[in-house]
C-alpha cells in the first residue's frame, strides 16, 4: 500500500513538469495553428479558421519553401561533414596518452560552448577587414580574400555549415572514440596478421562494426541540424537576404518579429512532423530490440 503511494509520488514532480512545460505547449500550439491570430492585432486568440494556415503554408508561401530548401541543404552538408570530420578526428585522437587527452579537452571546450557564443564568436572571426579567421582564409585562398564571407550568397551557407561542424565534431568524435574502444581488438589484429593495410582494416573491419553507432550518430546529428537555430540568429540572422534562413529561423521570425502566432504554429507543426518521422526511426533504432 505504501508502495503504491511511492510509485506515483516519486513520479509526480516529473509528470507535473512535463505536462506543464511540454505536453501543454505542444497541444496548445496545435490549437493556435487552427486560428488566425496576430498578436499585434489582438491579445486574445483570433478567429478559428480550421486548416487554412496549413493550406496557405503548403500552397501559397514560396518563402517558407525556400526555408525548407535552406534547411535541407544545411542539414545534408552539416551532417555529412560532421560525421566524416569527427570520424577522422576519432581515428587520430583515440589514444590515451597525455597528448591525446589534452587535445581532447581542448576540443570538448568547443562543444561545451554556448551555441550563441559559438555563433557570435565566428561572426567576429569572419568579419571582413578585422576578422582573424577571415584574414587567414584570405591568405590561404587569395580568391576569397575580398569576399565578405557572411554577406556573400555563395559563402554564408558554407560558413554556417563549417561553424556547425566546428561546434559538433568534438562531441561525435568522443562518441566514435568510445565506440572504437569497445571494438573487439582481435578482429583488427587478425586483419593485421593477414597483412591488410590501414585503409583495408578501417573500411573492411572497423567500419562495418561501427554501423550501428554510425547510424545513430547520423540520425542524431540530422535532428540537431534541423533544430539548429542559435547560430543562425547570432551569426547570419538568416542573411544575406534569406539565404541562411532555416525553417526554425523562419518560424522564429514569423512568431516573434511579425507576431503571426497562428501561422507560426502551423509552420512549427510542419517542422515537427518531419522531426516525428526522424524520432520514430531513432526510437526504433534505440529500442527496437526491447519490444
Amino acid at each position: 500500500m505504501r508502495d503504491s503511494a511511492l510509485k506515483w509520488g516519486l513520479l509526480a514532480p516529473a509528470i507535473l513538469i512535463s505536462i506543464a512545460m511540454l505536453f501543454y505547449p505542444i497541444g496548445r500550439s496545435f490549437w493556435y495553428s487552427l486560428h488566425d491570430w496576430n498578436l499585434t492585432i489582438s491579445p486574445q486568440l483570433g478567429p478559428f479558421i480550421g486548416l487554412d494556415n496549413y493550406v496557405r503554408l503548403l500552397t501559397d508561401d514560396p518563402q517558407f519553401w525556400h526555408s525548407v530548401w535552406v534547411s535541407c541543404v544545411f542539414s545534408f552538408f552539416s551532417v555529412f561533414t560532421t560525421i566524416v570530420v569527427s570520424m577522422l578526428m576519432a581515428l587520430l585522437l583515440q589514444g590515451s596518452r597525455q597528448l591525446e587527452i589534452n587535445v581532447r579537452s581542448i576540443l570538448v571546450l568547443a562543444f561545451a560552448m554556448s551555441p550563441a557564443l559559438v555563433g557570435i564568436s565566428w561572426r567576429f572571426l569572419l568579419a571582413p577587414e578585422f576578422g582573424a579567421a577571415d584574414a587567414v582564409i584570405g591568405w590561404i585562398f587569395p580568391r576569397w580574400a575580398d569576399v565578405p564571407i557572411l554577406a556573400d550568397t555563395s559563402t554564408a551557407m558554407v560558413a554556417l555549415v563549417l561553424v556547425d561542424v566546428w561546434h559538433w565534431a568534438p562531441y561525435f568524435m568522443l562518441t566514435f572514440i568510445g565506440a572504437l574502444a569497445s571494438l573487439p581488438q582481435e578482429t583488427i589484429e587478425a586483419g593485421q596478421i593477414d597483412g591488410a593495410g590501414r585503409f583495408r582494416i578501417f573500411f573492411g573491419i572497423v567500419l562495418p562494426q561501427l554501423k550501428g553507432v554510425l547510424a545513430i550518430a547520423i540520425l542524431l546529428k540530422t535532428i540537431f541540424s534541423i533544430k539548429m537555430l542559435e547560430q543562425v540568429i547570432t551569426m547570419t540572422s538568416g542573411g544575406p537576404g534569406s539565404e541562411t534562413s532555416t525553417v526554425p529561423h523562419k518560424v522564429y521570425e514569423t512568431a516573434f518579429k511579425f507576431y503571426d502566432f497562428g501561422y507560426a504554429a502551423a509552420m512549427a507543426y510542419f517542422l515537427a512532423a518531419a522531426m516525428l518521422v526522424l524520432a520514430m526511426i531513432y526510437s526504433r533504432m534505440l529500442f527496437g530490440g526491447q519490444k
Binding site: Y24, I26, I226, K227, A264, A265, Y269, L271, A272, A279
Partner: peptide
Amino acid sequence: FVPAVMIIIPL
C-alpha cells in the same frame, strides 16, 4: 525532438 519554437509560443 519537437522544435523549441513550438514549445515557446504557448509558453
